[in-house]
């Protein structure tokens, strides 16, 4: 109850102050603390149109900024295509558009879980979230923007549909998936335990790992894709019999599932699944 009340007041105050401070580009900005700042929190963000950027920083609060892009979805395309409708454009020429209540940003915190959402789908909104570094994340977006995460040590779950995913300087587990866009991940280090999974339909999967990372890879490419690697990937024997043997010894999978490749680096260890339908897989060694 209490944290929610506090946040409500924070939003209220921000609502009064924000227009005065950021009226020019109509940015909603809120700083919300976790109810137990001593423990790592979880931030969930949902967005339909727009991009999400999350950055880890050396602080305790979560700072959320929602910035509407300059155009209304759909209208922009009309204006670009229809040269004939000059009158329509003239109608509001030289006038300033007033934003009623920005994008309708909402932030709720309870028991160290913070939910950030922007219900409006008419405008593209870019969310910029600053979080304490060991925060875990759950980010969902659909259209018109990528998802970027930087400098976060917690566990990361990301789902996008039309847009790429870029994770840089992370060190927790990562589960990321998009349909149209590439997935790029750069790990400072691996925690060695939880499985990682990076998947896309149309785009490359590009992962950078520390040179000493011990990993069991499960790689799947499909149409015309290739696998490129800086690492010396030790491919597992694919013949039917040997793999059956391995299972009985508590080993791994049975056979390759069509184009799946099993391989390990530095003796194997943590499981990493990388899949793409139309694109390449790139395994890079951190320099």
């Amino acid at each position: 109850m209490k944290p929610i009340k506090r946040i409500f007041i924070a939003l209220l105050v921000m609502g009064m102050v924000a227009p005065a401070l950021w009226s020019e580009d109509a940015v909603d900005r809120v700083a919300v603390p976790f109810s137990d700042p001593g423990k790592p929190g979880l931030v969930k963000a949902h967005l339909i149109n727009g991009g999400i950027v999350v950055k880890g920083y050396d602080g305790k609060e979560v700072i959320v900024e929602a910035k509407p892009r300059g155009h209304v979805v759909g209208k922009h395309e009309d204006e670009m295509d229809d040269d004939g409708e000059d009158e329509k454009r003239d109608k509001h020429a030289g006038m300033m558009r007033l934003k009623a209540g920005g994008g309708g940003l909402s932030v709720e915190e309870s028991k160290n879980v913070m939910e950030i959402s922007v219900p409006s789908w008419k405008t593209d909104i870019d969310l910029t979230i600053q979080v304490p570094m060991n925060t875990s994340l759950e980010l969902h977006a659909v259209n018109n923007g990528g998802i970027k995460v930087e400098n976060v040590n917690g566990d990361i779950e990301v789902a996008n549909v039309n847009g790429g995913i870029t994770l840089s300087r992370i060190s927790g587990s990562a589960v990321a998936q998009t349909v149209n866009g590439s997935v790029t991940a750069t790990f400072n280090r691996l925690d060695g335990k939880k499985p990682l999974s990076l998947i896309t339909l149309n785009g490359d999967v590009d992962i950078t790992l520390p040179a000493t990372a011990k990993v069991d890879f499960k790689l799947k490419i499909d149409n015309h894709g290739e696998i490129y690697s800086d690492f010396e990937l030790k491919l597992q024997n694919k013949s039917e019999k040997t793999v059956e043997d391995k299972r009985s010894h508590g080993g791994r999978y049975r056979v390759k599932i069509d184009k799946t490749v099993f391989g390990s680096i530095n003796g194997g260890g943590q499981e990493i699944t990388l899949k793409t339908f139309n694109g390449d897989i790139l395994l890079r060694k951190a320099k």
Partner: peptide, 17 residues
């Protein structure tokens, strides 16, 4: 609740006969 933990659970089932 964590997707990574659920993935871990799934990968464990591959060892079961």
């Amino acid at each position: 609740p964590s997707a990574a933990a659920r993935l871990q659970g799934l990968s464990m089932t591959s060892r079961l006969q």
